[in-house]
Computed example of a mutant assay.
Amino acid sequence: MNLVPESSDYKQLFGVAYRMLGSAHDAEDAVQDAVVRWQALGDGERASIREPLAWMMTVVSRICLDQLGSARARRESYVGIWLPEPVPGTIGPATVSGRPPDPADAVTLDESVSVALMRAMESLTPGERVALILHDVFGMPFAEIGDVVGRTPDACRQLASTARRHLRSAPRFQPEDEQRRQVVAAFTAACATGDIDALTTVLAPEVVSRADGGGMPGIARVPVVGVERVARYLLGIVGLSEARGLTLGARFASVNNRTGVVISFDDQVAAVLDLAVADGRVHEIAIIMNPDKLGAWAEPV
């Protein structure tokens, strides 16, 4: 197996771990841990493994399952709103032994890395999240999922079913297409120019804005809800920054497999935005401002 970070196998394993953990840093650690375990095997042990990538995916999944419990405890003590760490570029898909996921299942590959759905998956138990992602997203049979979570196939089927029921209450949003890109562009232009009328036009009446500042002062620690409140909140941030003499910059970039916005002040990346769009309007805004989650965005992508 070629398991350097640039390889397709490594990217596939990272995609599994990131969807489970919501943190690029933790996902990289999980994959590296699995690599160490693979390298620790003897030559005979490695030769006996017919599908090395599937073996690695099982190991990565077990590592993630172990991490999810402690991750939930850390997020419960997190200051303000916790949002997933945004990843630039494309988070690669993966299948288990070439088996594609069932298109009739609940969660698609691209949807599974949307900030909105990953935030909603925080309500699932670790077992539910792992079973849902491995089966619905990556097509792993429940018998193999049982080896990961230590349950029977029927119990794993129930975990995935329960997870789907929980997620049905979460709104589903438009995938990346030309209309979505146009909405993102209109939203960005309205914010950059301070045009509140144009901004309120592109926002859904029940729009919700969530900002993850990791405890930074001046960042709302509860969701801002409603078109008027959200519009004034966003333009207020822009106006305050300009009043401080900062130069606002905005560029489009691939954020978790779809078009998002990178905001900078005086050429320093200050935030990454992911927008959830439906019916031609923005319904949810995720603003990641925690500097610890923006390291990968220092350079244009």
Rank of each mutant, 00 (worst) to 15 (best):
A189Y: 11
Q158V: 14
D105L: 07
E76Q: 11
V96H: 15
Y233T: 07
G226C: 03
S48G: 08
E85R: 00
Y18W: 10
T152P: 07
C64G: 02
G146Q: 06
R19C: 14
L248I: 14
E206R: 06
D197P: 04
T200G: 04
N256C: 05
A30N: 10
T193A: 05
R229E: 15
E28F: 09
F138M: 15
S48E: 14
K293W: 14
L234N: 10
A189W: 12
A286L: 01
I49C: 11
P223S: 02
V184G: 09
L275E: 14
V79G: 00
V225A: 08
I81N: 00
T247H: 12
I63R: 06
L273R: 05
A296Q: 14
I145S: 13
R50W: 11
L13K: 08
P126Y: 04
N290Y: 09
K11Q: 12
E122S: 08
T108H: 00
A286D: 13
S209V: 02
M118G: 15
R172D: 00
E299P: 06
A155Y: 03
D267M: 01
A286I: 03
A185M: 14
A286S: 15
Q39H: 01
V149P: 11
L21N: 07
R181C: 13
R210W: 00
P171W: 01
I133M: 10
L41M: 06
A270N: 04
P223R: 01
R99C: 07
M56P: 02
L13P: 13
L275R: 13
L124T: 02
D266I: 02
E228I: 02
R229N: 15
T152C: 05
R46M: 05
A143Q: 08
S7L: 03
